[in-house]
Design a protein around this nucleic acid. Structure first.
Lengths: 204, 204, 204, 204
DNA sequence: TATGAATGAGTCTTCATTCAT
DNA sequence: TATGAATGAAGACTCATTCAT
């Protein structure tokens, strides 16, 4: 089964690349390092990926897809606005805590030039994620359980604080496991978003 | 006045470097470009700074100091928790909107490992900013106007949403001027942080 | 035959480098010159050798090995102490006279610190040469044909004068072909080393 | 007394330069290092010496002059050929043992390109040394106490072995203090040079 | 004379990418 | 498809030397 072998080789390269990128940045990682750590040959790497940046991009896109999938899975089927919000926040914190390396990479790349340039394909993925997540919120907004706001602000208010917390942790500026912040952050987000008509304890 | 001349030369280099870094990133800026734009000689640049990265770092530190100063200035002398929170958020959004390029640079560098490695000096600045900002909140926390939370979460809840909004804008994913979000974000932050005994409209 | 091709490329580089080094010293030879003369690419040179100094070192080690081999070959199978001593001295003078440029290079590098620093590998070669040469003398020392002295002094007394003569010639301070000194130097060395019981003319 | 101050500054620079040159070669010593170690300013160094090579050259010439003077002083007034030869050899070994750093430098520079190029002035000094030393030997050669040989060979036979011994020691290839070789080397030289009519024990 | 900032030509070296086998 | 030697443009950085103060 050639395909499987190829797929595995591809994974080895991506895994090796991630380690290198995290250790000393995309910029300062040489193909030689990836080659050695993945024990693939130069030619082989270029057969799988067209360039170093393509590796970096593939890693970013795949990592983001994974993140998106996990957050959306966590958000699925929630009965109340409050549990939905809590689920999103908890998922973000959990993913970061469970895969700090990948998360750090995604954070760094998220604002890097590299992505911005190749971004066409990735942009769609991001838009689709935003659409899907908003779709999950929509019913509760329509029902007045969540206040009406410009659409983009929902993400800022739900994910923003969690992301801030995670960045702080990833950069080593704060030791406490991000998951410990799930409760207070979820509660705070709920308080900032709940419809004025809801009771203090939410609707569940 | 030798000192002054030297200082000016240093500024010219930094200004030229910032322009280059903003235009096409630290990574893709060559010393040659900085040299040409600053009309300093190669040797002169290396006389003032030990390496290209050192220039990037100096610029980052200065930019951050500026950001810190402006946020702290905005936070100074506020009478109520609510206006304080609003001031911090508004300042963050305003700075980003006014200097998008510098802000993007700071955002990118903030998670890059260049900083992590040279960071000793910078870390102190960050800590000091956190201390000062917390000091501004403290009276209101003690007075019960702001809920008691682990210290680090205040920043996540106040700055996190604004930062998320700004990143989204900086990456071109959202067209609306970040300053338009000041009111809703401030209101949301206030709702998430206000002490339980406070009235809906805050204490002012 | 990939190996052969690679080996040849390596040789071309070494040959070119030697020519350059002999012409204007290691110090003043640029990689550019070696590149041009060897018609190898920059990258190829760095693929074979890690640095310019490594080339210089390889050349030194090879040159020394050659010198060692030739001296030991000349010393092999000699029946008497006197002919052995003469053979060693004559070989040294001959090698220098035949390859003055390489000899000068070896002399210069021999005291340079480049060698001292990378020397591990080279040191063994030198030790092994000393061992082998001493082994050739040993029987005659044991037989009393050569006086008993601290081991290291044999080399000083046999090679020292020849080396001094050669250096003087190499530096252009003395015009006479070093080979003309073979007879008197050999005779002098023999007089200084012959056992007290031997006759004036030696044992042959 | 300006002169004295200048002279001292000059010495400081030379001393610093010697240390640097010995530690990592003339080639890899930067003026910056000499500047720092001598705590003189760049301009000051250039005021005293026209270039880096000039410092290296001055060091070499002065060191050689010193060596010459000491050897000639040791050779002065000797009554017999044997004591004369012993004195020269002992002086060489003693100087090396007492000032290994300077000796190593002189040895290295003796064959280096640098000297060869600037050598005019130095050449005369060397010739004059050779003349003077030969003048000391001349009476004994004329008297038949020392065998008749081409002039240049006297130095090779007297100094060659001692120099070989010293080089070996300076390069760390032989631990024994060179001075311990004075007796056997002097004896050997005497045996290789003494006139055939002299008795075994020489003429003293 | 002293100083040390400025100069800029010159080098080494790197490394993404190609391509013959 | 795999391999890894070869390529060479591109860049960072060095450092002897100059010169304004």
């Amino acid at each position: 089964m050639r395909r499987a072998a190829t797929e595995q080789r591809r994974r080895e390269i991506l895994d090796a690349a991630l380690k290198c990128f995290l250790t000393h940045g995309v910029r300062d990682t040489t193909l030689e390092e990836i080659r050695e750590l993945s024990s693939a040959s130069t030619g082989s790497i270029y057969h799988q990926f067209g360039s170093k940046d393509e590796i970096a991009f593939a890693l970013f896109v795949e990592g983001m897809r994974d993140y998106h999938d996990r957050v959306l899975a966590a958000a699925a089927g929630k009965r109340t606005a409050r549990t939905l919000i809590r689920a999103i926040i908890a998922a973000h914190l959990r993913i970061t805590a469970e895969e700090p390396e990948l998360s750090l990479y995604l954070t760094q790349m998220g604002t890097a030039d590299e992505v911005g340039e190749i971004a066409a394909e990735y942009r769609e993925a991001g838009d689709s994620f935003a659409r899907d997540l908003y779709a999950a919120l929509k019913p509760f907004i329509d029902a007045g359980e969540i206040v009406a706001l410009p659409q983009e602000l929902y993400f800022s208010l739900i994910i923003g604080p969690a992301a801030h917390r995670c960045r702080s942790w990833l950069r080593g500026r704060s030791a406490a496991d991000p998951r410990t912040a799930a409760e207070p952050l979820a509660e705070a987000a709920w308080r900032s978003l709940r419809g004025l008509g809801t009771t203090d304890r939410g609707s569940d």
